[in-house]
Simulated assay, not measured.
Amino acid sequence: MSSADTGIARLVPPFMVFIRHGQTDWNAEGRMQGRRDIPLNDTGRIQARRNGAALRDYFADKGIDKNGLSYFVSPLSRAVETMELICGELGVEADTCQRDERLLEITFGAWEGYTIPELAERTPELAAARKADKWGFVPPEGESYRMLSSRIDAWLATLTRPSVVISHGGVMRVLQGRLRSLPNQDIPGLDIPQDRMLVWTGSEVDWV
């Protein structure tokens, strides 16, 4: 059985800041976004600027050189715009940020665009199966959290430098679970704020 299935192995990257993209209209409506390229709304832009300013102040307080880190972003536009707003607050050139497809959101396949109540009406048996096993359930034409975790584990294993990462809620759940050594079944229910940053110090998780 792989470490992604057991949840026992702990991947320990160097210092890292993880920021979820700002809010979109679909986030506000509770719709499953996945790979659908939904833009930020005005609230999301405020959240991104807030996180950029908070990161700037955090770096200044801790004496961290913003130019000494690697920057990574999901290629979806809501993550890219969040990155651009954050870089503007930091005073970092946005073109230094590497787009990495491994940081794409978990895909919900044919379910993208629907809310959970809508899916419960359209496909009640599948909605019940998802509720019973959010970790292993694969939506029609989609991806499970187990599958996502394999992708993120492979990406984490490549990190060799302190990094800032701008990505998505599903990715943030898996990353939290890995860094905190949580049981797999707990990962899909983790909190995924859009107005705070996850900071991994190398030994513990903090929120800024």
Rank of each mutant, 00 (worst) to 15 (best):
Q47I: 06
V208I: 13
M16S: 05
N27E: 02
L190F: 03
P13R: 08
G44Q: 12
Q194C: 03
D186E: 15
R161N: 14
D65R: 02
S150I: 15
C87Y: 00
I166V: 15
L69H: 11
Y145R: 06
H21R: 06
L69A: 10
P124F: 00
E101H: 10
N51D: 09
G63T: 06
L104N: 05
K131W: 02
E143Y: 00
S149D: 07
D25K: 07
I8R: 14
M147H: 05
R20Y: 01
D95L: 01
T123S: 04
P124H: 01
F137V: 02
L156V: 01
S2P: 01
L119Y: 08
Y71L: 09
E141H: 10
L182E: 05
E105L: 08
R122L: 15
Y71R: 10
T123M: 09
V199T: 00
L179C: 04
L90M: 13
R180S: 11
E29A: 15
R122C: 01
G30T: 14
E89F: 07
E105G: 04
F15I: 02
F72T: 09
Q194G: 10
G34T: 14
G7S: 12
G91A: 04
P183D: 12
D57M: 02
D37G: 01
V80Q: 12
E125V: 08
V199I: 04
Q176C: 13
W155M: 06
R10N: 12
D186F: 15
M172Y: 04
P124W: 00
D100G: 00
A4S: 11
A53F: 14
R45K: 14
T123P: 06
D61N: 06
H21G: 06
A28D: 03
G34P: 10
T158H: 04
E118F: 10
D186S: 12
S181F: 09
G169D: 06
L119T: 14
D206C: 11
A120L: 00
L85Q: 10
T96W: 00
V92H: 06
A120I: 01
G113W: 00
N27D: 13
A128P: 12
D133Q: 04
D133Y: 13
M197T: 00
G63A: 04
R102S: 11
I8Q: 12
S74K: 12
A48K: 09
Q185R: 15
T6G: 07
K134I: 11
G91M: 02
P117R: 02
I8N: 09
L126H: 10
L175Q: 02
L159W: 05
L148V: 09
E121G: 13
T6V: 08
R20S: 03
W26A: 07
H168K: 08
F18R: 03
A94L: 02
N184P: 02
T160D: 14
I38Q: 02
W207N: 10
R178I: 09
F72L: 13
I64D: 03
R102Q: 11
M32T: 12
G177R: 14
D191C: 03
I86F: 05
L179E: 08
E121V: 12
A54I: 08
G169M: 08
L55K: 01
